[in-house]
Design a protein around this nucleic acid. Structure first.
Lengths: 166, 166
DNA sequence: TCACTTAGATATCGTTTGTATCTATCATTA
DNA sequence: TAATGATAGATACAAACGATATCTAAGTGA
């Protein structure tokens, strides 16, 4: 039944071989897989990729404001509101008063939030080991570095040629 | 205006430094940037990342069926229907009759579809050059290879240790 | 012929993320 | 100090993406 050779007439190995030349295509496919795995891993903790990220940033940066959190996570400000509502309602995060500005909140993780963060970091570290199992550490670091560079390059105004940021 | 030193108390360089250890996080951020750029580049052609991908696969694999297209793009079958409706209504793709199976279609690109595909490939190639401008070719290929490996690793049943696929 | 499977279409939902707008509160200055 | 404009967060809404469930028509096999 399973014909190992499912060659489509004059197809070049894979039907999407042309697309696989482009990093964006391969990235999109890889992200889908990784997101599924990481969300499955975090579900038992009541977290998703995004709420996990928010929690980690808050734990690491006590006193952070919501707008700074949004900036750090590269999303628009409204997107953090419901996540914080959730984390706060579960007693993981407090929206403390920002000193000297009654509009703003100073975000901080509770003890429970820090505990959960530690657990989640372990879960995600295991996830990372799982999905990068096919890479050695040098490849893994090179991957992260390359992705970071691409993010920055793509965020820069298109058409600019100067890389200086001194 | 721009205070170059926005150090947050005892923050470690970047507020999301912890998260940047994880490939999934960096991938997600990079994908967002790349997707925006590629979609902006394709908009003048009336394409998006996904319809572009579908068009390329159809051009490369004449006679392909919808289910095979969905498989090739790693999405569920309903997701290709509306994209094909669009491509077909614009005269870029034909849903020809599949020989010997009246349920199935044999997809093929029209002349116009092939033309547009060529243009789109050029646009996307330029996009690729733009976003990978910070990488040399070796890094770019290593990135693509690493992402492919991760996709495959992550798709494999979790917890398995055997890599054999003979 | 009857039961089962498969290709594609339709309907619907969930997630993720963005834009626009509202409010309270700042900060500035006439 | 009152008016103006900017900013922090909340709310409402919408667009894009992708999945599941189910329907139909057509194929397959006992």
């Amino acid at each position: 039944m399973n014909a190992p050779d499912k060659a489509i007439e004059g197809a070049e190995t894979a039907p999407d071989a042309t697309l696989r030349q482009f990093s964006g295509y391969v990235m999109k496919r890889a992200v889908a897989v990784v997101r599924n795995d990481i969300n499955a891993a975090l579900t038992p903790l009541g977290l998703r990729m995004f709420s996990f990220s928010a929690l980690v940033v808050i734990v690491d940066n006590p006193g952070l404001r919501q707008a700074q959190l949004a900036d750090a996570l590269a999303v628009e400000r409204p997107n953090v509101v419901s996540v914080l509502d959730d984390l706060q309602s579960r007693g993981l995060v407090r929206r403390g008063r920002a000193p000297g500005d009654k509009r703003a909140y100073a975000l901080e993780a509770t003890e429970a939030g820090q505990d959960l963060c530690r657990q989640a970091l372990q879960v995600v570290t295991e996830h990372e080991a799982r999905v990068t199992h096919g890479l050695d550490e040098g490849q893994r670091l090179a991957l992260i570095r390359a992705l970071s560079i691409m993010e920055q390059t793509g965020r820069a105004p298109a058409g600019r040629e100067d890389d200086d940021e001194s």
